[in-house]
Design a protein around this nucleic acid. Sequence first.
DNA 1: CCTTGACTTAGAGCGCGCTCGAACCCCTAG
DNA 2: CTAGGGGTTCGAGCGCGCTCTAAGTCAAGG
Lengths: 150, 150
Amino acid sequence: MRLDEKQGVMKIGELAKRSGLSAHTIRYYERIGLLPYADRDAGGRRDYDESILVWIAFLDRLKTTGMPIREMLHYAELRAEGGHTGPERRRILEAHRDRVRTHLADLQACLLVLDTKIDTYVEAEKRTHSHDDTEHSHKAGPIGARSARA
Amino acid sequence: MRLDEKQGVMKIGELAKRSGLSAHTIRYYERIGLLPYADRDAGGRRDYDESILVWIAFLDRLKTTGMPIREMLHYAELRAEGGHTGPERRRILEAHRDRVRTHLADLQACLLVLDTKIDTYVEAEKRTHSHDDTEHSHKAGPIGARSARA
DNA sequence: CCTTGACTTAGAGCGCGCTCGAACCCCTAG
DNA sequence: CTAGGGGTTCGAGCGCGCTCTAAGTCAAGG
């Protein structure tokens, strides 16, 4: 370990671990322009510093909320272009936010229907097993306790 | 119009209009087993009755909530198999519901971050244009009023 | 009779977002 | 010196969910 290598602290493998993306995916993202071209060390290997993690986390959120890569790319290009693109980036995010809100509402509506449907199955099972309530053991458990967060 | 054709009331084209799926997609769904094999008229054309719309609406909800076709297919097969598969169908729906809830929570979290990010752009624009607040007219409007439902 | 147009089938093709394989390079530990 | 385990590039391949093309059938209207 010599001291003339201070900039980059992570090689792609470590970034992969820390970001949750695969090294393959990181290279792919760089190729298409979602990630900035990374500095290389003497041997041509990518060398990242922490700051990339922030950008990747942001991309993850866009991805989670269903933004297509094409659009993330557009945003990334604007970002690379500089500060004067702020207003357009803002508009992109606002439009995206609205789509997400709409989708969220759709999901919530579906969830209600799903709950209702599940209830009809629960009722049906009650009627079928009627009073015969010997342990349903492994079948499902007493509802709830399964939903992790929320 | 003769009277010996009462069962089916819709041809695939009308079902397409009423269900929002394309005729291509309807045939595709039948092929893979998501939709039951439809009765054909004398000329071999598919002839549907209203009840199919209910099933399609349910499939749409599963789709909207991100269930992969493979799993809908499994559900569809159980359904076709009969009433004794109720408990398993129930378990499938419960597991799916839990995934949807989790995803919903993720989305909500992302939405918060998105809002924050947008705020930073808004702030930045405030500082840039400072007191120069001549109409930003078509740029965005005074927020809100755009999200349709919800 | 002939055209129009909605229907039929089998199967190819597409857009998306990765994911992987092949062949090679380079650094380090044993 | 050698083996291993990273890394590199380029490009092919894949799973998903449709989407479309081609070639043909059939029924009704002018």
